[in-house]
Write a protein that binds this DNA or RNA. Structure first.
Lengths: 331, 331
DNA sequence: ATTTTTTGATTAATCGATTAACTTTATACT
DNA sequence: AGTATAAAGTTAATCGATTAATCAAAAAAT
């Protein structure tokens, strides 16, 4: 079976490939191609089940109509959901999405960028790994359209779609305090990323403003040994039981590990200890108790970041924009 | 900044593009290019940060070194994990993965296939939607390499990587019975897909062999109204409480909905009622009770399906193979 | 001194699609 | 009649990389 190209259609119909291309791209106005021939071409293309070769098109046009999405780990629900929505919107705009995983590693992120560039992606949407400022900077220099999502670098003049991490954490902590929990603890990752720092800052400021802050109100766990660190952290906290009446977990993975640890100890959540967390986890729906959580507008994050990216791609002169979407506490 | 192509390197060095290509592809043996010039070219390529244009290469070579992965929903952990592993292995083999979602819909699956074909993917890995035999058949006819994963069509002569759904469910049910649960109920999706049918068959046969089977031991819920149907199913089952002492959920999503419904009613799982399920859910780890579950070898499924696919791609004459991997009950 | 081989590189066609510039024929206008 | 305009296409270059076929010069063989 011969591969069906423009040429094949042209040959069958006794016209030139140019004519076929013109018609199939809707550029047959202004008396370029007759109505009659146009119809013949369209029919023949359908008959032969012609599928345009987008490699050839991309090569000629200088764009591939594809974008790269670089996330930490596609098997994480947050990123999976983000990817799903980005793909859905991208499809509507005629773009393909190629997804890459970094596993939070700088070198893998770099490899992915080179890889995606070789595939001529028209732009990149990235959840940058820790310490990747320089890498992002070099993308910026190369003028390749790029948008950061979920995490950003405030000192970098780059488009990004973030959420109001500081405000929502400040507000939520405030709420906790107002409800009478005067000894809450914030558990977060031991890492230096803007978004997690902002969450922590939200908590800390709220505590300070209420005159309650003490350094031991913040605990940090490592990404690599989450379970183990969490065990340690919780058991430490429980030693000073009178000092802790609530825990605020900074991410979905931390929440899971934390709640698991608490339950294992036979603690009654929202009774023995108040729990609040960042991100939704369907596990939380299973419990007889309600866990307030901060819900990120994932679909909107997807939509906005794609909008910003396509803006850059199709209209080169656009300036970097930093969007802050609103995450909300759901009680 | 000029785009760096083979031509640019060639010009800078005063040689032809052909020479550069030869060197950069390691085809400079047999006195094709001198050692000296080779080194110069390699150095210059590094200096200019040359990244080959894979659209051009793909166009010329007739393959894109990319594969399409079509799943139901990338935000589902099962598919997310599968995608992660497929991508990891694919990268090692030099292939890119483009992921598409079908949302279990036939027409979306068809659209994705056309889309991926236009991007000249070298092959497809698919978790086929219900009723897509004909579609898969037409891919087969077109000689495009394809591997089904997770779900298959026994009547189709197509490579697939499945698990021993029947056996593992038979065995698990048997175990349940032997432990003294003589009135178990199997809750599955109301759909006609081979893999879910096999799971059901495993349950039913085990029950029959134990002389315990009755049609009401199987309940079906719909994919679209899972929560609502589950509520109905559970409340029906509880009416005849003496008749049910265990529930076997057929998938991860069903398990979540089922357990949620049971807990809402204040039932003590593994005490008032025994629960067993297909697939791991990290939510299950949170409970003070252990839920036995059937663990699929997702990473191996990923690896094998990629192996089969690449086999087809790089060695056209290979015959379709059907692999059945072993899923195990974890207690 | 020729002829043959080896070494080191170049030429030019090709993959499939796009499009500016051109050609040809028919029709309209003054 | 002679010129302008419109209609309906075609030609040919191009995107970047690959590679079979070729070529030129130097070295080796006869």
């Amino acid at each position: 079976m011969e591969k069906v190209s423009l040429k094949v259609i042209a040959r069958e119909l006794g016209v030139s490939a140019a004519t076929v291309s013109l018609v199939l791209n809707g550029k047959n106005k202004n008396g370029r191609v007759s109505e009659e021939m146009s119809q013949k071409i369209i029919d023949k293309a359908a008959e032969l089940n012609y599928i345009p070769n987008s490699l050839a098109k991309g090569l000629k046009m200088g764009h591939s109509k594809s974008i790269g999405l670089i996330v930490a780990d596609i098997s994480n629900v947050f990123f999976g959901t983000l990817a799903l929505h980005i793909q859905n919107y991208a499809e509507k705009e005629g773009y393909t999405v190629i997804i890459g995983n970094t596993n939070e590693k700088l070198e893998e992120m770099e490899k992915m960028i080179t890889f995606l560039n070789s595939r001529q992606v028209d732009g990149l949407i990235i959840t940058p790994a820790e310490g990747s400022e320089v890498l992002i900077g070099s993308i910026l220099e190369s003028k390749k359209p790029v948008v950061l999502v979920d995490r950003g670098f405030p000192e970098l003049n780059v488009s990004s779609v973030l959420i109001n991490n500081y405000e929502v954490c400040y507000h939520s902590t405030r709420l906790l305090i107002n409800k009478g929990y005067k000894k809450p603890v914030f558990i977060t990752y031991k890492q230096d990323q803007f978004h997690t720092n902002e969450r922590k800052r939200g908590f800390v400021e709220a505590m300070k403003d209420a005159g309650l802050f003490n350094p031991y109100h913040v605990k940090e766990v490592s990404y690599q040994c989450l379970e183990k660190d969490m065990e340690k952290a919780i058991s430490q906290l429980l030693k000073y039981k009178r000092k802790v009446d609530a825990i605020f977990f900074a991410t979905n993975t931390i929440s899971m590990a934390g709640v698991k640890s608490l339950l294992k100890r036979g603690l009654l959540i929202q009774k023995d200890i108040q729990v609040m967390c960042f991100d939704e986890t369907d596990a939380m729906n299973l419990f007889p108790f309600k866990v307030p959580f901060i819900k990120q507008p994932i679909e909107e994050m997807a939509k906005r970041s794609l909008e910003l990216l396509i803006g850059q791609i199709e209209n080169k002169d656009i300036k970097p924009r930093k969007l802050f979407l609103e995450a909300k506490l759901i009680n």
